[in-house]
Each structure stands twice: as structure tokens, then as C-alpha cells.
Amino acid sequence: MSDTTLTKSDGTSGVGPVEGAPVYDVDNPAPYIEAPRKRTSKTPRSTRGNFEMAAWLFMRLSGVVLVVLVIGHLLIQLVLDGGVSKVGFAFVAGRWASPFWQGWDLLMLWLAMLHGANGLRTVINDYAERPQTRMWLKGLLYAATVFTVLLGTLVIFTFDPNIR
């Protein structure tokens, strides 16, 4: 509406009376608008960082693996051998006696926590608009994630069937 690019060959303005007279002219130039994605002194050398792409790919790869780990886990804990009724310290001790199930649970813990944390990061990025809010929510998310992953890892590795 307010630009002066519509200039006819005879030099008169191409903006007709319907649009109104141009607001800007030689003495009152329009503010300069930078081209989108213009490189500035603050732009990193490469703007093609691939963290987001790696995160996107990780969601899909971890998802495929999690299908096996999580569905297997649900089958064992909730369906086979009497479902949840059988679960107790003795049952846990029986399963973690095997390095295979320790490894299963460890991989499931790490993949599910990182997958879920990255998913929540996306959700926070989508809805929390104020920079302060985003920072605090993500800080809380990362703290809770590190805490949970470390606690779970510690519990799997230091489990002691003869605790007393």
C-alpha cells in the first residue's frame, strides 16, 4: 500500500487515487526492512545446525525401538503370569538377576526419558511464548529428566536382592 515502486515510465506514480497517495517519498523514505534470513554480524557462520533434525530423527528411531521395549514390558508386567498381582520385591529381584532384563530396562529408561523429554520440549516451544516462561519450564524439564534418568540408572545398577 505504502510503497513507491509502482512508478510509470513517465515518472508519475502508478498508485491510483483509490489506494491513496503514497505515504513515503524521497524526503520521507520508507523504513528499511531487512530481507528475511539476511546474514547479520550475529548470525552464526552456519545456520544449518542440525540439532533439530537430529532430534526429529531421534524421535522416530527411538519410537520404533520403544514399541518393542514398552509393549514387551507391559506384557510381562500386566498380562503374563497373573498380571500386576504378582509384582513385588521378589518379582523385581527375579528379573534383575538377569543382565538381559537389566539391559532391557536400562535402554527403555534412557530412550523413553529422552524421547519424552524431547517431546515435552517441543510442546513447551509451541505453547510457552514468553522467553522467561520458556526458560523456566525447560529448566524444570531438563532438571527432572536428568534426575530421573540418573536415579533410575543407579537403581538398576545398584539393586541388591539381599538388601537386609
Binding site: F89, L109, G119, L120, V155
Partner: peptide
């Protein structure tokens, strides 16, 4: 569902950690 599962998983790791407290 993704957000729900994440919150559940947080609690689930905490309750399982009780095996390090006592049977």
C-alpha cells in the same frame, strides 16, 4: 498421550526406586 505417559514415567521411576529403600 505423550505428555501423560511422560508424567507417569517420572512417578514410575520414583516408585521403582523404593526397591533401594526396602522390600
Amino acid at each position: 498421550t505423550g505428555v501423560l505417559i511422560f508424567f507417569f514415567l517420572f512417578v514410575h521411576v520414583l516408585d521403582t526406586a523404593l526397591v533401594r529403600v526396602s522390600p
